[in-house]
Amino acid sequence: MALLTVENLRTTFRTDDGPVGAVDGVSLSVDAGQVLGIVGESGCGKSAMSLSIMGLLPKSAMVEGSIRLGDRELVGLPGGELRRLRGAEMAMIFQDPMTSLNPVMTIGWQLVEAVRLHQKVSKAEARRLAIEGLAAVGIPSPEDRLRSYPLELSGGMRQRVMIAMALLNRPRLLIADEPTTALDVTTQAQILELMRELRREVDAAIVLITHDLGVVAELCDEVAVMYAGRVVERATVDELFARPQHPYTWGLLASLPGRNLASERLHQIPGSPPSLLRPPAGCRFAARCPFVMDVCRDDPPPLTPTGRGTAAVACHLAQDVRDREGARLSGEERA
């Protein structure tokens, strides 16, 4: 049974200009020990979705649909109960480690707080757990680091602290929202390496939010591609890279910098995502899609299984066209 099941999730923000549907009918699920990658550009609703799961959205946001952690329904759960789950059953790592730690408290204080919010243990025991946690994420001389303030650590070290803090209470679900985006390239590689190791050790379901397909290829088992608040394609990582099915995914793959194409200009998808204030009636990618047909502009395509494993795609294009184009693209990639 899936650890996290999201069904028909709708997250709407009330704004002065009207409701904005940041997440519009997303369904997905992750099993324990699995890593689900969520890919999409800025504003596609990835972060709104993860914050909906954690229950961290402001009151002005409306969350509808169903989010189940194990067999517990999270949508509509009273604040107090949700709070007991946060940091214990489900934890989150954020994008910018430079601003995600409290600047005026020591690392030790913040880690001990995280332990003692959920475990009835003594301060000394919490401290021991904190040291253990820091050691597990590869922080040298963890005991001394407890006395450090965030500003005394580098970005990579801070992100390690964030990861350690998230794992302190052995959560069943870990959401990592762009955990490497704000770091420099060498540090990114180290944090990815760390996440890959932790993946094997902690038996948690991991939702990894990123706009970087390279990160997806390295860490994930399954991928959901999001566009303008909807999932447009879902597949295992191998399947996605071998036979990408959605024109938007093709665009994303084509815009990856190739290893042997240093001299070539990067591909870009023309246009920009639609306004979520007044989304288009049909397929949301229609305006930018090179394969657009009349039906695309009127009818939103449902997410339909492709018949290969768990893969599904929301596109009106015929299966053979999608297979041909997808194969051509991934063939080019390999060439």
Partner: peptide, 15 residues
């Protein structure tokens, strides 16, 4: 509206 306040909430700290 700072990130570390969101972190505190994500840890499960009460309001």
């Amino acid at each position: 509206s700072e990130d570390y306040v969101r972190t505190a909430r994500a840890k499960g700290a009460g309001e």
